[in-house]
Design a protein around this nucleic acid. Structure first.
Lengths: 349, 349
DNA sequence: CTGAAAGCGCTTACAG
DNA sequence: CTGAAAGCGCTTACAG
C-alpha cells in the first residue's frame, strides 16, 4: 500500500460530506451544523489528517510569516548580541500579530536568490549597507518590505537611527577630553577606496565623526587620525588594538563603530596590560548589555535596538494589512551618549 | 487597470513560449536553447516577474525551510543567551544545506496550532518538557522532527544531554566541599505537586541531584535541602536568592538549574553584600559565555549547546532527504563539570 | 446548512 | 529542443 498523504478529499469521503464542509469545519465551524462538524473532525482524527500549509498559502495568498533578510550567514549574524536584541523586538510584534518569523540568510552567497523563494508576507531587511540589486528584487517580488540599518532609498520605507548625530556627539566627548590622536575602527564594508566609498550606517557614522573633527579644524586625513576597517566581531576589535598599539605613534583614543568591536579592543588592551582609560580611551556604539558589565564599563552610544525591530515589524504588519501610508515611511530614531569608565582625559606624553 | 500579479503564463505569452519553457528557463536552463532562455529571461525582467513560493512548494512538496518549534514567546526565549547559541548551531547546518529557518512560537498560546500551519520540511522541537499532544500532532503532520531538551518518547528521535550525570557530578562537588545545607533552584515547570511531577530535563537533573544526595544518605526531603522553582531568567535567580537569604536557616550553597538563574543569584548576592563563595557557594548549568565573565566566575556544568543545535538540524536534513535510520535516533551528549570561583568550602557557623 | 466548481501558480512526466 | 496536460491540496464565491 502506497503511503499516500491524507487529503481533505479523503476526510470528506469518510465523513460523507464535501470538501467545502471539511474546510469549513476547520476554518469556520460556526457556519456548519454542530453534528456535521463533530462528524468531520472525527473522520479527520481517524485518518490522521493534517492540512497542507503550501496549498492553503497558495489559495489564500497569505503565509502569516514575516521574513528577516540577513546580509550574512546565520551563525555569524547571531554572534553579535545586537541581533538577539533586534530579534526580540521583531519577536514581540510577531507574537502579538500572530506571525511566525523566517530567518533568511543569503542562499549560496546571494541574497538575490533568497528573495524570490521565501514564503513570507513581507520582509525586514537588516544591514543592507550596499544595495546590489536587492531592493529591485524586493520591489519585483511585490510584497511589502522595510529597510533597517541600510543604505537609504527615497521611495523605500526604512527604520534607522541617527548614526551621524550619535557619532558626532561621541567624538565631541573625546575631543573635549583633549584627545587629538584618535583611531577610528569602522565595520568592514567590503568596498575598496576607503570611507569615500562607504554607504549606509557606516558612512553616516563616519560623516558624524568628520563633522566633529571639523569643528576642531581636523579631518580624517589629519595627523594623528587613523581610519581602519575590521569585521564586526570581538576578534576584529582585538586585532585592531594590536595593530594600533604596534604603531610608533599610538592613538590616545580608539573609537569603535560597534560595542562588540570595542569589547574586543578592551580584551586586547587587558592582555597587553594597557590601562583603560589612563593610557588609552575606548568607545563603542550600540549599548549592548555587555557594555555596562565590561571592566572598565564602556562609554558608548545607546541606540534603541529592540524598538527598531519592533517598529520595523509593526510597519510591515500594517503594510501587509493594506495600510497605504507605505511609500513615505522613513523613521529615524535618536541616540544617547553614555559616558562610562572607558574614557578619560588624554594622557600627557 | 487591475494590478494583477505577473504570472508565469504572462511571461510565456510575452516570450511566445509555453509555461513549461518559462519554468525550465528558471530551474533547468541548460535543457533549453540558449536563445530561448535569453528571450524568456528578458520577457520576465520586462514584466517584473517573480515566481510564487507557495505554488512552487505545493507542486514540489518541498519548502527548503526548517522549523524551530518553541514552547514560549519569541522575545522571552531570546532573553536567554542559551538560545542564541542553540540557534547558531542550527544556523550552521541550515546554511550548509541551503535551508532557511522558521521560528515558530506558540500561536494564540498553543503550540498545537502552529504545528499544522508552518510551511517547513521538518521541525526541531526545543524544550518540550511536558508533552500535551504536541508529539501526536507532529506525527500526524507527517514530516520529520527531532525533540531537543524534551520529555523522551520511545519512538521519537531526540538529541539531549546527560542531565542526570551532570547534576550528580555537580552535587558531588558541593557535598565534597562539605555543603549540607543546599538549595536547589529549578526551572519553573508549571506543574503542581513538586518534583515528583516534573518531566524532561528538569526531572533528569533532579534525579541526578537525588542520586548524589543519596550517596550521603540524604534526600530532597532531608533537613537543610530546599527545592524551589523560578522562571528561567536573571530576575528569577535574584528573587530566589532573596527568598533563601531571608530564611532563618540559610543554605550554604545554591544550585541553579541554569546559568542565567545562577547569574541572577550572583547579582542579588552582590546587592546584599554577601560574599561568594566565602558565605555561600553558587553553581549554574549550561556554561554560557557569561559564566566565565561573571565575578566571581561561575562553577557550572558545560553542555555542548551549539553542537546540540547542529546535530538536531543535521539529523533533520538527513530525514528529509529520506535516510530511514529515522525511528531509533536517540543522541545523548556528555557534560563537563567546570569548577571556577563561585564555589568553595562550606562556611563553618 | 451544504455542495459543485473554479482556480490559486507552479512543475513534471510524457510525447513529439 | 519545446509544448499540452495533468495535478499538487486547498478556499471561496455562488447557488440551492
Amino acid at each position: 500500500m502506497k503511503n499516500r498523504r491524507v487529503t481533505m478529499q479523503d476526510v470528506a469521503d469518510r465523513a460523507n460530506v464535501s470538501k467545502t464542509a471539511v474546510s469549513l469545519a476547520f476554518n469556520n465551524s460556526n457556519r456548519l451544523a454542530e453534528a456535521t462538524v463533530k462528524n468531520i473532525l472525527e473522520a479527520a482524527a481517524e485518518l490522521g489528517y493534517s492540512g497542507d500549509p503550501a496549498a492553503r498559502m497558495l489559495r489564500t495568498r497569505r503565509t502569516d510569516s514575516l521574513g528577516l533578510l540577513l546580509p550574512q550567514q546565520l551563525d555569524k549574524v547571531l554572534e553579535n548580541p545586537y541581533y538577539t536584541q533586534f530579534l526580540q523586538g521583531i519577536g514581540q510584534t510577531c507574537q502579538r500579530e500572530g506571525f511566525t518569523l523566517l530567518l533568511a540568510p543569503p542562499l549560496r552567497g546571494s541574497m538575490l536568490k533568497t528573495i524570490p523563494y521565501a514564503a513570507v508576507d513581507g520582509f525586514i531587511v537588516s544591514g543592507l549597507e550596499h544595495d546590489r540589486g536587492e531592493v529591485k528584487a524586493l520591489q519585483q517580488r511585490g510584497i511589502p518590505f522595510v529597510l533597517v540599518d541600510s543604505e537609504l532609498h527615497d521611495d523605500v520605507p526604512s527604520v534607522e537611527i541617527d548614526d551621524s548625530e550619535g557619532m558626532e556627539e561621541l567624538l565631541g566627548h573625546l575631543l573635549s577630553l583633549g584627545h587629538r590622536r584618535i583611531a577610528i575602527v569602522a565595520i568592514e564594508t567590503g568596498t575598496e577606496g576607503g570611507y569615500q566609498n562607504w554607504r549606509g550606517p557606516v558612512l553616516r557614522r563616519m560623516q558624524g565623526a568628520i563633522a566633529a573633527l571639523a569643528s576642531h579644524a581636523m579631518a580624517p586625513e589629519s595627523d594623528g587620525i587613523t581610519v581602519l576597517e575590521v569585521p564586526c566581531t570581538r576578534a576584529g576589535g582585538a586585532a585592531a588594538f594590536q595593530q594600533l598599539w604596534a604603531q610608533t605613534e599610538r592613538p590616545t583614543a580608539i573609537v569603535a563603530f560597534s560595542d562588540i568591536i570595542a569589547l574586543g579592543v578592551l580584551d586586547a588592551a587587558r592582555d597587553a596590560d594597557v590601562a583603560v582609560p589612563q593610557e588609552i580611551s575606548v568607545t563603542g556604539f550600540d549599548d549592548l548589555a555587555e557594555a555596562s558589565w565590561s571592566s572598565p564599563s564602556l562609554t558608548t552610544i545607546r541606540q534603541p535596538i529592540e524598538t527598531k525591530g519592533r517598529l520595523a515589524a509593526e510597519y510591515l504588519v500594517e503594510s501587509i494589512a493594506g495600510a497605504s501610508s507605505a511609500r513615505d515611511h522613513h523613521q529615524r530614531l535618536h541616540t544617547v551618549l553614555l559616558v562610562r569608565d572607558s574614557t578619560g582625559p588624554a594622557p600627557v606624553r
